[in-house]
Protein backbone atom coordinates (compact mmCIF):
# COMPACT_ATOMS: atom_id res chain seq x y z
CA UNK A 1 0.00 0.00 0.00
CA UNK A 2 2.79 2.33 0.90
CA UNK A 3 4.50 1.95 -2.46
CA UNK A 4 1.13 2.32 -4.23
CA UNK A 5 0.50 5.58 -2.39
CA UNK A 6 3.97 6.75 -3.34
CA UNK A 7 3.29 5.95 -6.99
CA UNK A 8 -0.06 7.74 -6.90
CA UNK A 9 1.60 10.85 -5.47
CA UNK A 10 4.37 10.60 -8.04
CA UNK A 11 1.92 10.47 -10.94
CA UNK A 12 -0.10 13.31 -9.41
CA UNK A 13 3.01 15.45 -9.29
CA UNK A 14 4.03 14.45 -12.83
CA UNK A 15 0.54 15.22 -14.12
CA UNK A 16 0.57 18.57 -12.37
CA UNK A 17 3.90 19.45 -13.93
CA UNK A 18 3.28 18.15 -17.45
CA UNK A 19 -0.19 19.69 -17.75
CA UNK A 20 1.52 23.00 -17.02
CA UNK A 21 -0.93 25.36 -18.69
CA UNK A 22 -3.97 23.56 -17.41
CA UNK A 23 -2.51 23.62 -13.89
CA UNK A 24 -1.79 27.33 -14.16
CA UNK A 25 -5.30 28.03 -15.44
CA UNK A 26 -6.84 25.96 -12.66
CA UNK A 27 -4.74 27.69 -10.02
CA UNK A 28 -5.53 31.11 -11.45
CA UNK A 29 -9.26 30.41 -11.33
CA UNK A 30 -9.01 28.97 -7.86
CA UNK A 31 -7.06 31.97 -6.59
CA UNK A 32 -9.87 34.19 -7.87
CA UNK A 33 -12.49 31.99 -6.23
CA UNK A 34 -10.65 31.86 -2.90
CA UNK A 35 -10.03 35.60 -3.12
CA UNK A 36 -13.78 36.15 -3.45
CA UNK A 37 -14.41 33.91 -0.45
CA UNK A 38 -11.75 35.72 1.60
CA UNK A 39 -13.18 39.09 0.60
CA UNK A 40 -16.60 37.91 1.73
CA UNK A 41 -15.21 37.22 5.19
CA UNK A 42 -13.69 40.71 5.36
CA UNK A 43 -16.90 42.31 4.09
CA UNK A 44 -18.98 40.46 6.61
CA UNK A 45 -16.66 41.55 9.43
CA UNK A 46 -16.96 45.19 8.35
CA UNK A 47 -20.66 44.90 7.69
CA UNK A 48 -21.40 43.27 11.03
CA UNK A 49 -19.34 45.71 13.03
CA UNK A 50 -21.09 48.60 11.27
CA UNK A 51 -24.51 47.10 12.00
CA UNK A 52 -23.46 46.49 15.59
CA UNK A 53 -22.45 50.11 15.94
CA UNK A 54 -25.75 51.34 14.54
CA UNK A 55 -27.63 49.00 16.87
CA UNK A 56 -25.66 50.34 19.80
CA UNK A 57 -26.75 53.86 18.99
CA UNK A 58 -30.36 52.88 19.64
CA UNK A 59 -31.49 52.98 23.26
CA UNK A 60 -34.52 53.94 25.29
CA UNK A 61 -34.82 55.77 28.59
CA UNK A 62 -37.43 55.32 31.22
CA UNK A 63 -38.00 58.47 33.32
CA UNK A 64 -39.22 58.35 36.90
CA UNK A 65 -41.45 60.74 38.78
CA UNK A 66 -39.52 63.07 41.07
CA UNK A 67 -41.06 61.55 44.18
CA UNK A 68 -39.70 58.08 43.44
CA UNK A 69 -37.11 56.90 45.91
CA UNK A 70 -33.67 56.01 44.60
CA UNK A 71 -33.76 52.49 46.06
CA UNK A 72 -36.94 51.77 44.08
CA UNK A 73 -35.32 52.93 40.88
CA UNK A 74 -32.28 50.78 41.59
CA UNK A 75 -34.61 47.84 42.21
CA UNK A 76 -36.19 48.41 38.79
CA UNK A 77 -32.72 48.62 37.25
CA UNK A 78 -31.80 45.27 38.82
CA UNK A 79 -34.92 43.67 37.41
CA UNK A 80 -34.20 45.12 33.98
CA UNK A 81 -30.60 43.92 34.03
CA UNK A 82 -31.79 40.41 34.73
CA UNK A 83 -34.03 40.35 31.66
CA UNK A 84 -32.54 38.20 28.88
CA UNK A 85 -33.38 40.80 26.21
CA UNK A 86 -31.50 43.58 27.99
CA UNK A 87 -27.84 44.10 27.26
CA UNK A 88 -27.27 47.02 29.59
CA UNK A 89 -29.32 49.09 32.04
CA UNK A 90 -27.72 52.23 33.37
CA UNK A 91 -29.17 54.26 36.24
CA UNK A 92 -28.79 58.00 35.78
CA UNK A 93 -29.66 60.00 38.89
CA UNK A 94 -31.09 63.54 38.67
CA UNK A 95 -27.77 65.00 39.73
CA UNK A 96 -25.82 62.91 37.21
CA UNK A 97 -28.21 63.93 34.43
CA UNK A 98 -27.67 67.57 35.34
CA UNK A 99 -23.87 67.18 35.50
CA UNK A 100 -23.74 65.40 32.19
CA UNK A 101 -25.87 68.08 30.59
CA UNK A 102 -23.65 70.84 31.97
CA UNK A 103 -20.53 69.03 30.81
CA UNK A 104 -21.96 68.55 27.36
CA UNK A 105 -22.94 72.20 26.97
CA UNK A 106 -20.21 73.86 28.94
CA UNK A 107 -19.21 75.93 25.93
CA UNK A 108 -22.70 77.20 25.33
CA UNK A 109 -23.07 80.19 27.63
CA UNK A 110 -26.73 80.70 26.85
CA UNK A 111 -27.81 77.22 27.93
CA UNK A 112 -25.67 77.30 31.08
CA UNK A 113 -27.08 80.69 31.94
CA UNK A 114 -30.67 79.53 31.48
CA UNK A 115 -29.97 76.53 33.65
CA UNK A 116 -28.53 78.72 36.38
CA UNK A 117 -31.53 81.02 36.25
CA UNK A 118 -33.88 78.07 36.60
CA UNK A 119 -32.52 77.46 40.08
CA UNK A 120 -33.81 73.88 40.47
CA UNK A 121 -32.74 70.65 38.69
CA UNK A 122 -35.12 70.18 35.74
CA UNK A 123 -33.90 66.65 34.96
CA UNK A 124 -35.61 63.45 35.94
CA UNK A 125 -33.96 60.32 37.23
CA UNK A 126 -33.93 57.70 34.48
CA UNK A 127 -32.68 54.32 33.47
CA UNK A 128 -31.00 54.09 30.09
CA UNK A 129 -31.65 50.71 28.48
CA UNK A 130 -29.79 49.02 25.66
CA UNK A 131 -31.46 45.90 24.33
CA UNK A 132 -29.59 43.04 22.69
CA UNK A 133 -31.66 43.67 19.58
CA UNK A 134 -33.70 46.75 18.61
CA UNK A 135 -36.70 44.47 18.11
CA UNK A 136 -36.86 43.91 21.90
CA UNK A 137 -37.60 47.53 22.84
CA UNK A 138 -41.29 47.09 22.29
CA UNK A 139 -41.45 44.17 24.73
CA UNK A 140 -39.25 45.92 27.31
CA UNK A 141 -41.40 49.05 27.21
CA UNK A 142 -44.52 46.99 27.58
CA UNK A 143 -43.01 45.12 30.50
CA UNK A 144 -42.23 48.43 32.27
CA UNK A 145 -45.63 49.91 31.53
CA UNK A 146 -47.55 46.95 32.80
CA UNK A 147 -45.29 46.09 35.75
CA UNK A 148 -45.99 46.78 39.43
CA UNK A 149 -43.76 49.85 39.34
CA UNK A 150 -45.58 51.48 36.43
CA UNK A 151 -46.99 54.04 38.86
CA UNK A 152 -43.54 55.50 39.44
CA UNK A 153 -42.82 55.91 35.76
CA UNK A 154 -43.25 59.33 34.24
CA UNK A 155 -42.65 58.32 30.65
CA UNK A 156 -40.75 55.95 28.40
CA UNK A 157 -39.21 57.61 25.38
CA UNK A 158 -39.65 54.48 23.30
CA UNK A 159 -43.16 55.56 22.41
CA UNK A 160 -41.94 58.82 20.91
CA UNK A 161 -39.25 57.04 18.91
CA UNK A 162 -41.23 53.92 18.19
CA UNK A 163 -41.58 54.47 14.44
CA UNK A 164 -37.89 55.24 13.99
CA UNK A 165 -36.71 52.30 16.08
CA UNK A 166 -38.98 49.86 14.31
CA UNK A 167 -37.95 51.11 10.92
CA UNK A 168 -34.27 50.91 11.84
CA UNK A 169 -34.67 47.46 13.24
CA UNK A 170 -36.34 46.39 10.01
CA UNK A 171 -33.59 47.88 7.87
CA UNK A 172 -30.94 46.17 9.96
CA UNK A 173 -32.72 42.86 9.61
CA UNK A 174 -33.14 43.15 5.87
CA UNK A 175 -29.57 44.25 5.27
CA UNK A 176 -28.24 41.42 7.39
CA UNK A 177 -30.32 38.89 5.49
CA UNK A 178 -29.48 40.41 2.09
CA UNK A 179 -25.81 40.45 2.95
CA UNK A 180 -25.95 36.82 3.99
CA UNK A 181 -27.77 35.72 0.84
CA UNK A 182 -25.50 37.77 -1.44
CA UNK A 183 -22.49 36.22 0.31
CA UNK A 184 -23.94 32.76 -0.11
CA UNK A 185 -24.55 33.31 -3.82
CA UNK A 186 -21.05 34.68 -4.37
CA UNK A 187 -19.50 31.79 -2.45
CA UNK A 188 -21.57 29.36 -4.48
CA UNK A 189 -20.40 30.95 -7.74
CA UNK A 190 -16.78 30.82 -6.57
CA UNK A 191 -17.10 27.13 -5.66
CA UNK A 192 -18.83 26.17 -8.91
CA UNK A 193 -16.28 28.01 -11.04
CA UNK A 194 -13.53 26.06 -9.29
CA UNK A 195 -15.39 22.82 -9.68
CA UNK A 196 -15.96 23.37 -13.38
CA UNK A 197 -12.34 24.32 -14.02
CA UNK A 198 -11.15 21.10 -12.43
CA UNK A 199 -13.83 19.20 -14.30
CA UNK A 200 -12.52 20.60 -17.59
CA UNK A 201 -8.96 19.70 -16.63
CA UNK A 202 -10.02 16.14 -15.97
CA UNK A 203 -12.24 16.03 -19.04
CA UNK A 204 -9.03 16.64 -20.94
CA UNK A 205 -7.70 13.35 -19.54
CA UNK A 206 -10.81 11.26 -20.12
CA UNK A 207 -9.22 9.12 -22.86
CA UNK A 208 -6.23 8.47 -20.66
CA UNK A 209 -8.49 7.41 -17.81
CA UNK A 210 -10.23 4.99 -20.16
CA UNK A 211 -6.93 3.47 -21.29
CA UNK A 212 -5.61 3.13 -17.74
CA UNK A 213 -8.71 1.18 -16.81
CA UNK A 214 -8.46 -1.03 -19.90
CA UNK A 215 -4.93 -2.05 -19.04
CA UNK A 216 -6.02 -3.07 -15.56
CA UNK A 217 -5.61 -0.07 -13.25
CA UNK A 218 -7.98 -0.08 -10.30
CA UNK A 219 -10.28 2.90 -9.93
CA UNK A 220 -8.35 4.11 -6.91
CA UNK A 221 -5.08 4.02 -8.79
CA UNK A 222 -6.62 5.99 -11.67
CA UNK A 223 -8.35 8.50 -9.43
CA UNK A 224 -5.59 8.97 -6.87
CA UNK A 225 -3.28 11.21 -8.93
CA UNK A 226 -6.20 13.46 -9.90
CA UNK A 227 -7.22 13.88 -6.27
CA UNK A 228 -3.65 14.77 -5.41
CA UNK A 229 -3.51 17.24 -8.28
CA UNK A 230 -6.76 18.79 -7.05
CA UNK A 231 -5.28 19.09 -3.56
CA UNK A 232 -2.18 20.73 -5.02
CA UNK A 233 -4.28 23.26 -6.95
CA UNK A 234 -6.11 24.10 -3.74
CA UNK A 235 -3.02 24.32 -1.54
CA UNK A 236 -1.09 26.52 -3.95
CA UNK A 237 -4.10 28.75 -4.69
CA UNK A 238 -4.85 29.05 -0.98
CA UNK A 239 -1.30 30.18 -0.24
CA UNK A 240 -1.35 32.67 -3.10
CA UNK A 241 -4.66 34.14 -1.90
CA UNK A 242 -3.31 34.25 1.65
CA UNK A 243 -0.27 36.18 0.47
CA UNK A 244 -2.28 38.57 -1.73
CA UNK A 245 -4.41 39.60 1.24
CA UNK A 246 -1.37 40.74 3.22
CA UNK A 247 -0.40 43.87 1.22
CA UNK A 248 -4.00 44.41 0.18
CA UNK A 249 -5.37 44.63 3.72
CA UNK A 250 -2.31 46.57 4.83
CA UNK A 251 -3.14 49.15 2.21
CA UNK A 252 -6.91 49.09 2.75
CA UNK A 253 -6.82 48.83 6.55
CA UNK A 254 -6.59 52.57 7.38
CA UNK A 255 -9.14 53.36 4.68
CA UNK A 256 -11.74 50.92 6.00
CA UNK A 257 -11.09 52.13 9.51
CA UNK A 258 -11.77 55.71 8.43
CA UNK A 259 -14.77 54.85 6.29
CA UNK A 260 -16.58 52.25 8.37
CA UNK A 261 -15.21 53.30 11.73
CA UNK A 262 -13.50 49.96 12.21
CA UNK A 263 -12.20 47.37 12.42
CA UNK A 264 -8.89 47.88 10.64
CA UNK A 265 -8.99 44.89 8.31
CA UNK A 266 -5.23 44.46 8.42
CA UNK A 267 -5.39 43.98 12.19
CA UNK A 268 -8.43 41.82 11.71
CA UNK A 269 -6.53 39.71 9.15
CA UNK A 270 -3.55 39.21 11.44
CA UNK A 271 -5.76 38.46 14.44
CA UNK A 272 -7.73 35.87 12.45
CA UNK A 273 -4.82 34.55 10.40
CA UNK A 274 -5.26 30.95 11.48
CA UNK A 275 -8.91 31.07 10.50
CA UNK A 276 -8.03 32.49 7.08
CA UNK A 277 -5.34 29.84 6.67
CA UNK A 278 -7.82 27.09 7.44
CA UNK A 279 -10.49 28.47 5.13
CA UNK A 280 -8.26 29.42 2.19
CA UNK A 281 -5.51 26.78 2.22
CA UNK A 282 -7.11 23.77 3.87
CA UNK A 283 -10.55 24.67 2.51
CA UNK A 284 -9.02 25.18 -0.94
CA UNK A 285 -7.31 21.80 -0.87
CA UNK A 286 -10.52 20.19 0.29
CA UNK A 287 -12.44 21.90 -2.51
CA UNK A 288 -9.85 20.67 -5.04
CA UNK A 289 -10.05 17.09 -3.82
CA UNK A 290 -13.85 17.04 -3.74
CA UNK A 291 -14.07 18.60 -7.21
CA UNK A 292 -11.65 16.00 -8.59
CA UNK A 293 -13.54 13.23 -6.86
CA UNK A 294 -16.85 14.28 -8.39
CA UNK A 295 -15.27 15.00 -11.78
CA UNK A 296 -13.56 11.59 -12.05
CA UNK A 297 -16.62 9.76 -10.84
CA UNK A 298 -18.37 9.82 -14.20
CA UNK A 299 -15.37 8.30 -15.98
CA UNK A 300 -15.00 5.50 -13.47
CA UNK A 301 -18.53 4.37 -12.86
CA UNK A 302 -18.77 1.54 -15.40
Amino acid sequence: MNSQLKRILKYGLIGFWRNGWISIAAIFTMVLALFVIGSLIFSSALFNSTLERIKNKVDISVYFKDATEEKDIIAVKEILSSLPQVKEADYVSRQRALDEFREKHKNNALIIQSLDELGSNPFKANINIKAKDPAYYEAISKFLNEGEFSGAIEKINYYQNKAVIERLSEILDVSQRTGFIAGLILAFIAVSVTFNTIRLAIYNSREEIKVMRLVGASNNFVRGPFLFEGALYGLISGFIALIIFLPLTYWLGPKTLAFFGGPNIYDYYLANFLRFFLILVIGGAFLGVISSLIATFRYLKD
Binding site: Q4, I14, G15, E208, G216, S218
Partner: peptide, 19 residues
Protein backbone atom coordinates in the same frame (compact mmCIF):
# COMPACT_ATOMS: atom_id res chain seq x y z
CA UNK B 1 -3.87 3.62 -26.86
CA UNK B 2 -0.61 4.69 -25.26
CA UNK B 3 -0.83 7.20 -22.44
CA UNK B 4 0.11 10.45 -24.23
CA UNK B 5 1.35 12.35 -21.17
CA UNK B 6 3.59 9.52 -20.01
CA UNK B 7 7.00 8.63 -21.43
CA UNK B 8 7.73 5.31 -23.12
CA UNK B 9 9.28 4.10 -19.89
CA UNK B 10 6.30 5.18 -17.79
CA UNK B 11 3.83 3.62 -20.21
CA UNK B 12 5.43 0.24 -19.60
CA UNK B 13 6.25 0.69 -15.92
CA UNK B 14 2.65 1.75 -15.26
CA UNK B 15 1.46 -1.80 -15.96
CA UNK B 16 3.81 -3.23 -13.36
CA UNK B 17 3.07 -0.46 -10.87
CA UNK B 18 -0.68 -0.96 -10.85
CA UNK B 19 -0.20 -4.64 -10.09
Amino acid sequence: KLLPTKTVFENIAFILEIA
